[in-house]
Design a protein around this nucleic acid. Sequence first.
DNA 1: TATTATAATAAACATGTGTTGATTAAACAA
DNA 2: TTGTTTAATCAACACATGTTTATTATAATA
Lengths: 169, 169
Amino acid sequence: MTKRMLKDALIELLKKKDIYHVSIRELCEAADVNRTTFYKYYGSQFDLLADMENDLLEFIMKTIRKNEEDAEKIVAGVCEYLEENLEFARLIINNNVDPDFAHKLFAMDAIKQSVYERFSAGKSDDEIEYIYNFLTYGAFRTVCAWLNKEERESPAELGRLISQMISNG
Amino acid sequence: MTKRMLKDALIELLKKKDIYHVSIRELCEAADVNRTTFYKYYGSQFDLLADMENDLLEFIMKTIRKNEEDAEKIVAGVCEYLEENLEFARLIINNNVDPDFAHKLFAMDAIKQSVYERFSAGKSDDEIEYIYNFLTYGAFRTVCAWLNKEERESPAELGRLISQMISNG
DNA sequence: TATTATAATAAACATGTGTTGATTAAACAA
DNA sequence: TTGTTTAATCAACACATGTTTATTATAATA
């Protein structure tokens, strides 16, 4: 598949330079794909990276949905997968092409629900929405910091820490 | 000043299209600045935008540092300024050129200190660092959501809400 | 005033971008 | 096999990018 070759080539190139300095020409050359073909699928390097981001998201969603128990288990599950694909995950996270990636990663019913259950008492819808935003992005950033560390706690431990922060402790 | 003209021109262009579709040629034309001159100062559109981001940060820091009291007042102060420059602030926030913008915005001693005072008991340095990350990015995202709303609460109210979320309530 | 840094312009060049229209290759059903 | 559809290539195009080298304004200073 052509798309696969382009993605693989981009991963290689991103080890040497950041996304802004990857030219479409060299990308196509590395992937051995015609430049016209690239434009048939993507509009830019960023588009391609965004597509790879979605691959990651989809895979995580599939992996996770089996055991949608509580927030702690979900976060731990996500982290486990991210750690298994450490290089790629770091690459996606640190190139932040999509400002809504955090939202997509943690916008799961199970999490939203647990936020509502925990915090909805006596709060307006607007306030709850703020809280939900606050928590998902806080959690996301925590996961990023964790991923970029060399000596990481276990995914389970981080899940515990984050769910503790969410319900505060 | 040449830089000023480039910045003003970019603001105008960003009202019509996003940063990826602003060409340096048209930018220079709009600013009435030679293209070579542009490259003397900046490497790309993104560079220019990042510089504008720093302007915003610096101004906020100057405005805020007078009354570095508690987290609530600081957040309220930041929001107040952002609201006064609503168009520009939205533009910067929604174009997220710098993934560390959140950190820069809230990485103030007063905030860090209040996090430490509130949460350091019985926690390792690593944990505290996670918490600090969690809270600053959560707060940042909340401010973003607030800024993008049409009918916003007052800055003081948001400051209250965020400081509540930080110390949990 | 003449002198000397500094900022901005201008022309030009090789390379990258995004799009077109025409051609070839591969896959598959009739 | 043939014909048909779809994917990929190729050549060529106008335009943008990033850099260089030389030239002209515009200051500030002696």
